[in-house]
Amino acid sequence: MYQEFAQVYDELMKEIDYSQWSEYLQRLFLNANREIKSVLEFGCGTGNITCNLAKKGFEMTAVDISEAMLTIADEKADAMDLKNIQFYLGDMSNFKIDKNYDAVISCCDSVNYLPTLEAIQSFLVCSHDSLKSKGLLLFDINTVTKYKKTIMDNTYVYDTDDVFCVWENEPDFTKGEMHFNLTFFSKNPNETYNRYEETQTQYMYTIDEINRCLLNIGFHKIKFFDFGSYNPGSNEGERIQIIAEKK
């Protein structure tokens, strides 16, 4: 999965301030009733947040379903000489590990890639099982409002020194799905280009649906923030940050 997209992901997402995102997570860790030292990250991608948190001293275990993404993440960690990261190939909805953590995180709307509420619940079970008592679960989602009013059926063109990409959004609001159709050309060292095509799908969920799933699994002290702030989150925002505690 995401074999070719992994090679251009960082170039296309370079406007994201991962350092600021990581600092926001670190501030949210202060909500915990235990000190956060060890963190399990689901959907780590190319390791941008993973490495930022590792540089701050957290013991990181990072999981992704894409081997290609993990290869890039591991190369970043090696280049930074970060010894406090372990990477695993795995699915966030069925991952098992014989260890418990102070916090479980999933960032960059990774949870929106889960196709059903049953898959969401499976992810929450994995997270709950991986947490220590009073440990925190933190993840974010894109809202239905964002898909309908911002993402919509827009087409974007990215033209950089090494990548040319056409990104077409194809919504199906009756099914609660958003399809991203990507065609991109990646430059080789010999100045030729490789052409790739890839389709990804995200799924739309409401705060009420997520809240019910969290309660069903046994989480409590559930909070929904407007992403990047401590203001109450709503379905009318664009990205919601969710925090929940294991009893």
Rank of each mutant, 00 (worst) to 15 (best):
G90A: 06
T155M: 11
N94S: 15
N100A: 10
I72Y: 06
I72G: 08
N154T: 09
R34Y: 06
D162N: 15
A244K: 04
D208K: 14
E168S: 15
P232Y: 01
L136R: 04
E75G: 05
K134L: 00
T206F: 06
E236K: 09
L182R: 01
Y9T: 08
K175Y: 00
S133V: 00
C51R: 07
L25E: 05
P171R: 07
G135L: 00
A79D: 12
L70Q: 07
Y203P: 12
K247W: 00
K134M: 00
M178D: 02
F224Y: 10
K55N: 10
L138R: 03
E198N: 15
D140V: 02
A62G: 03
N194S: 15
K148V: 11
E191K: 14
Q241C: 13
K99D: 08
F87E: 08
T199C: 14
S229V: 01
C213D: 07
F173Y: 15
D140R: 05
E170C: 14
V111A: 10
G237T: 04
Q241A: 13
N33A: 04
V8L: 07
I97R: 05
K187F: 04
N52R: 13
F87Q: 05
V104A: 05
T71Y: 02
D162E: 14
D91K: 08
L89H: 12
K175E: 11
A119W: 01
K132R: 01
Y193P: 12
D102E: 08
